[in-house]
């Protein structure tokens, strides 16, 4: 009996490690120039912004569809696409990782020509290609607080609240003391939970997304909003 249990455990472990390895397989990357080439040549090329609705409506690659990573989307994507479609995923700031639900779903559905865009929308724009805005959020004038002065800012505010807009995984890996996690991808659904009378410091990964979040929150009635300059990446570099 013991032997059977051991054999079964070994089998389970092997399958698990195999599945783990399979999911850890790196996604194929494509750069902005190559993507432009594919879009010009192939009518079956589909570009998907998985960075969340706010970010996608604010700016996207022309023709891209907005499908957030969390997979809560109810559309038939990607089932309605031919299996030989070229599908390229991106976010505003870079290439999404393999844990993105929509990408896993697409791979599981048997699509083979699946890529992620290196550098995301920023790289696309940097290469000189235009972006489209379905519902752009006008930017407010929100000062950026340098990493070294976060404590100073907290002391100076009557009722400070740090809003961390990174993914739950990144938030769990490390965040500022007292920060609460409102991922940008779902901010439009959750912003009402944030008390209107708080002074906000919006924290993102590298300073590229906090401006959008701050501007969105300002449109929703928040008045005292600042951003962390350079995001958590800069904070971790500069504050030991």
């Amino acid at each position: 009996m013991k032997r059977k249990i051991v054999a079964l455990l070994a089998l389970v472990l092997t399958v698990c490690s195999w599945t783990g390895m399979a999911s850890a397989e790196p996604l194929r990357k494509i750069d902005a120039q190559a993507l432009k080439g594919k879009l010009d040549q192939s009518p079956k090329a589909v570009v998907v912004d998985v960075g969340g609705l706010l970010s996608c409506l604010d700016a996207k690659i022309p023709g891209a569809v907005c499908r957030p990573c969390d997979g809560k989307d109810t559309s038939s994507f990607p089932a309605d696409l031919p299996k030989d479609s070229v599908i390229v995923f991106y976010t505003a700031g870079g290439a999404p990782d393999g844990e993105c639900g929509v990408i896993r779903q697409t791979l599981a559905a048997g699509f083979r020509e699946v890529y992620v865009l290196e550098g995301g929308l920023a790289a696309w724009r940097k290469a000189g290609y235009p972006a489209a805005a379905e519902k752009r959020i006008p930017r407010i004038t929100a000062h950026a607080v340098p990493p070294s002065r976060v404590g100073e800012w907290q002391k100076a505010q009557k009722n400070p609240l740090i809003i961390d807009i990174r993914s739950p995984k990144a938030f769990a890996a490390g965040h500022l003391d007292g920060a609460v996690n409102y991922p940008l991808a779902g901010l439009h659904l959750q912003y009402a939970d944030i008390p209107l009378d708080r002074s906000l410091l919006v924290v993102d990964e590298d300073g590229a997304q906090s401006f959008l979040a701050a501007s969105y929150l300002a449109r929703k009635g928040f008045v005292n909003i600042k951003r962390l300059r350079g995001g958590m990446a800069d904070y971790q570099r500069r504050v030991p």
């Binding site: 604010d58 700016a59 505003a92 700031g93 920023a122 724009r125 940097k126 000189g128 235009p130 972006a131 805005a133 752009r136 930017r139 300073g207 590229a208 401006f211 959008l212």
Partner: peptide, 10 residues
């Protein structure tokens, strides 16, 4: 079009 404000912050 390729300015940092446009590229990174839209």
């Amino acid at each position: 079009r390729t300015d940092a404000h446009a590229v990174k912050q839209n």
